[in-house]
Design a protein around this nucleic acid. Structure first.
Length: 471
RNA sequence: GGUCCCAUCGUCUAGUGGCCCAGGACGCUGGCCUCUCACGCCGGAAACACGGGUUCGAGUCCCGUUGGGAUCACCA
């Protein structure tokens, strides 16, 4: 092993950081961390029509949220145009590239014809051996691809893939306005930044032989390639908006923990025996291209939910309390900093194994935090009625008069009421649950009472009694 | 259409020639626990796409078929 490993994640800012991009970033990041290498963030924004600064911010935001810290960058390709020009000129000077004067219309027409005749859609090579410039036309620059032999891609995931050079056409590396195109910039940057391993989606596999030829034209050594399989939607088509949320920040807003998302993403195509849940440290330790599958994977939201629930269950309540705060504030339940974090943590603790997302957690927290509650109509009818009235009345008196509002004592009060009336605990617990939370599903009723505290609990019992009497 | 990639339960996957009448996880489902809901625990249904080879023996190797995906821009 010589030389340090250098990898990069190179999104183009024409949209948010999406699920597929996040996984590519993740595998790059893991590989860098594992080998004590360098992880570079590079923004491929040479498509000036579609790239925006807003998307750059969104991508960076997503990367930070996921915890993928980079060592160098973010670099922007639009700031590196002189470099690409320099390399293009070198290619021209050494005869590896040439001016092409064909008009876009002309090219389009020949593509259509090729399509009609069922031939490969390939540039004709018309200007390949042109001696004289065509006046009045600003030309593009094309790279001269070899036309015989084959190019081998030795991929870390796909294995050896062979492409016949006949099918490589002379692709444009400089547009007629002098700006560079993707296949040039990607190679130049990877060379310039000393990238040793190109880890990207396998939608780039077909581009790889072209890029390898450009490396050769430039006389540079070729990095290792690893092409990750795609992520598909439930209908096996490429994951898109139609399948629901695709941007990672949308998952943050839906209440997923970044570690859970990362854990989900890594298991899409990679495995380590039967293990499902990994810490980031474990991922860094175990990751290997050998265990990356070759087949595309379908994104499965239910499993993400399960993983997220696992992470919520295993988080410590204090962390969870601060993670859920933005959701509480957004719901108007809490004003910034105006809540006892210790109390909130205790409340959170009772809901951890009942919440799949932070959004759900926040919504359950509502009945603890808000002054007043609303009854679920069905629950009210079923449990707040003549039958429960005497029980609730007794409980209210019992709780109101106790000086010891502890779990132990509350339980004793419940038990004595239940015994006196020869009913089951549930016959009292359910009406109380409705009185306290408005519904029939909640943490253990003693826990709920304890979190609510004596004042609130008694007040809610009084309200329940009034409600029964009024009905 | 050309080229390239891929193919184990509905989904994510284990499996690298005998340990596999195929294991785990999500989901689904029966039960237990129980003040409700969850969690947890025990059980169930559910897959090697198909056809040829190679081999004493194939989910595992080879070929073909079928099916899916990617790509073929003065996008990246």
């Amino acid at each position: 092993m010589t030389g340090k490993i250098r990898v990069r994640f190179a999104p183009s800012p024409t949209g948010y950081l999406h699920i597929g991009g996040a996984r590519t970033a993740l595998f790059n990041w893991l590989y860098a961390k594992q080998n004590n290498g360098t992880f570079i963030l590079r923004i491929e924004d040479t498509d000036r029509e579609r790239s925006t600064d807003q998307f750059i911010e969104a991508i960076i935001d997503g990367m930070r949220w996921l915890g993928f810290d980079w060592d160098e960058g973010p670099f922007r390709q639009t700031e590196r145009f002189p470099t690409y020009r320099k390399y293009a000129e070198k290619l021209m000077k050494e005869g590896n590239a040439y001016y092409c004067y064909c008009s876009p219309e002309e090219l389009e027409a020949s593509r259509k014809e090729a399509m009609k005749e069922g031939r490969a859609l390939k540039y004709s090579g018309k200007c390949r051996n042109l001696r004289e410039p065509v006046h009045g036309v600003s030309p593009v620059v094309r790279f001269r691809m070899p036309q015989d032999g084959a190019t081998i891609v030795d991929d870390l995931i796909k294995g050896r893939v062979e492409f016949s050079n006949e099918q490589l056409d002379d692709l444009i590396i400089l547009r007629s306005d002098g700006t560079p195109t993707y296949n040039l910039t990607v190679v130049v940057d990877d060379v310039d930044m000393g990238i040793t391993h190109v880890i990207r989606g396998d939608d780039h596999l077909n581009n790889t032989p072209r890029q390898i030829q450009i490396y050769r034209g430039l006389n540079y050594s070729i990095p290792k390639f690893a092409h990750l399989p795609m992520i598909l939607g439930s209908d096996k088509a490429r994951l898109s908006k139609r399948h629901g949320a695709t941007s990672v920040t949308a998952y943050r807003d839906m209440g997923y923990l970044s570690d859970a998302l990362v854990n989900y993403l890594v298991r899409l195509g990679w495995s380590h025996g039967d293990q499902e849940i990994f810490t980031k440290e474990e991922l860094i330790k175990y990751f290997s291209f050998e265990n990356v599958g070759k087949a595309a994977a379908v994104f499965n939201p239910e499993k993400l939910d399960w993983l997220n629930a696992q992470y919520i269950m295993n988080s410590n309540p204090e962390d969870l309390a601060s993670l859920v705060m933005p959701f509480l504030i957004k719901d108007g339940l809490v004003k910034e900093g105006r809540i006892d974090i210790k109390w909130l943590s205790d409340a959170v603790k009772t809901l951890q194994e009942r919440s799949k997302t932070l959004l759900e957690l926040a919504s359950s927290l509502r009945y603890y935090i808000s002054e007043d509650i609303e009854y679920n109509e069905k629950s009210r009818k079923k449990f707040l009625n003549e039958k429960s009235l005497p029980l609730l009345l007794e409980l209210k008196d019992g709780l109101a008069s106790t000086a010891d509002f502890s779990a132990r004592n509350i339980e004793d009060i419940f038990k004595s009421i239940v015994e006196r009336h020869s009913v089951k605990l549930g016959d009292l617990a359910q009406p109380v649950r409705v009185a306290m939370t408005g519904g029939t599903a909640s943490p253990g009723i003693f826990e709920v009472l304890l979190i609510l505290g004596k004042e609130k609990a008694v007040r809610r019992l009084e309200k329940a009694l009034e409600t029964i009497r009024a009905s």
